Simulated assay, not measured.
Amino acid sequence: MLTFRQLETFREVMRSRTTQAAAEALRVSQPAVSNAIRQMESQIGFDLFDRVGKRLVPTPDAEEIFRDSEAIFELYNVFAQRLDSRKTNSMGTLRIVCTPPVANALMPPVIRDFVGTRPEVRINLDSRRIDGLFESLETRRADIGFALNPPQRPGLVREELALAQMVCAFPPGHPLSEKLAVTAADLASYPLVLFEPASKLNLILQDSFLNATLRENAIAEVRYTSLACLLAEAGIGPTLVDSLTAHAGHRYKLEYRPLYPAQRVSVCALYRANEPAKRVQTAFLDAVRGSGALAGIDEFGVTDG
């Protein structure tokens, strides 16, 4: 079986027609080139060159072998380029799973900027509730996950990327726009768009902000922050969402005020513990850490005290 190095040496001799020139191109000694050609001829059972003075004249068989070998080197060059792209994190496949608020608010600008400089990277983005997110990571259907206030989970690393807070969202001109911060008492006289009782964001609010009166004022209950904002935008009633949803993209025609006392919520990355990450995954997580989409989520200020 011929080695790749033998083919490489043969190819260079075919180009230069002398062992000395081939040796200089390959940065080896001239005897090393001569020995490689003789070993190749011995292995295949026939001569590849006629020796004419100091020059090597390829036989017709050598010319055919040379043409056939070009496909091997073209494939090798493509492979080498792909390896180099992986080294610079400019290619690869990344499977991301997020809870809906993070998928809607954080991922679009981060992915846009990330693939903008890495056109050969392929992103698979899935949006799931927290149980589905855990399942995707644990069954390796996803490489990395992002969620708001996820619980600790054995076998997964939970990295806090930023600290957001819950805010009140309402249409421009609403009486709540006169407030610097919104208390539970401020909302007592308004119909509200709230989250389903079992939803993660409702669980954040129910212990220290939502009371029986506010729950009775719920004219609509939803599962996702995007739908809560759309209903508030339509004038159905104020709603309570995370500041990541409020800040990222400014896509809703709404005004926002922080809650008092402040209701904090963590933006977290989750990935499998004790398992090396793909290079493209590490690069993407770095991009999320430095994202401008995270930079403004606490812009409403801390209202405690």
Rank of each mutant, 00 (worst) to 15 (best):
A184K: 01
S266H: 13
I44E: 05
A25E: 01
Q152T: 12
L231V: 00
S177G: 05
E159A: 10
Y76L: 13
R95M: 06
A147D: 05
R153C: 09
L227N: 10
N35K: 15
A36Y: 02
F134M: 12
P171Y: 09
F209G: 03
A147W: 09
F284L: 05
T303P: 01
A22F: 10
S90P: 00
L56F: 10
D143V: 09
D61I: 08
V52C: 08
T213R: 15
V280R: 07
L244Y: 05
G301R: 08
R82L: 15
H247D: 09
T117R: 14
A188L: 03
F170E: 03
N124M: 14
A184Q: 03
F300T: 00
I44Y: 04
G132T: 11
L56P: 04
I96G: 01
A147R: 12
R140M: 09
V57N: 06
A103Q: 11
S85T: 06
F49W: 06
A105T: 06
V57W: 03
D286C: 07
V280C: 06
V78A: 13
L180A: 12
E70C: 01
A212M: 12
K179C: 10
R215D: 10
R129M: 12
E41S: 06
S189P: 00
F79G: 07
Y224K: 11
V267H: 02
A21E: 14
M40L: 15
V78K: 15
L48E: 00
Q39N: 15
I72C: 06
G292S: 14
A248L: 04
L285A: 05
L227C: 02
S69C: 09
T59Q: 02
Q20H: 14
E63D: 11
F284A: 01
V267C: 00
E216M: 13
A185K: 14
Y76V: 12
S16I: 00
A21S: 08
Q30P: 07
G237F: 08
E233N: 09
D50Q: 11
L26H: 05
Y252E: 02
P175D: 06
A71R: 15
R223Q: 12
L176F: 03
E233S: 13
V280N: 06
P100H: 11
L203V: 11
V280K: 05
G235M: 07
L2H: 08
N77M: 12
V28S: 01
A293Y: 07
M1Q: 07
N274M: 13
V157N: 03
F134Y: 14
S69Y: 01
L192R: 05
S208F: 10
K253G: 04
D186W: 03
L254A: 03
Q20C: 08
F170V: 08
M14Q: 10
A188I: 02
D61N: 06
D207Q: 12
V97P: 02
M1F: 03
R122N: 14
Y224F: 10
F170M: 09
E70T: 08
E221L: 14
G237M: 08
S34N: 10
R158G: 01
K253V: 11
I236T: 04
R27Q: 15
F10C: 08
L106E: 11
F66I: 01
L244I: 06
L26P: 02
E24Q: 14
D207M: 10
D126P: 00
F10A: 10
S90C: 07
G237V: 07
A32L: 08
N35D: 12
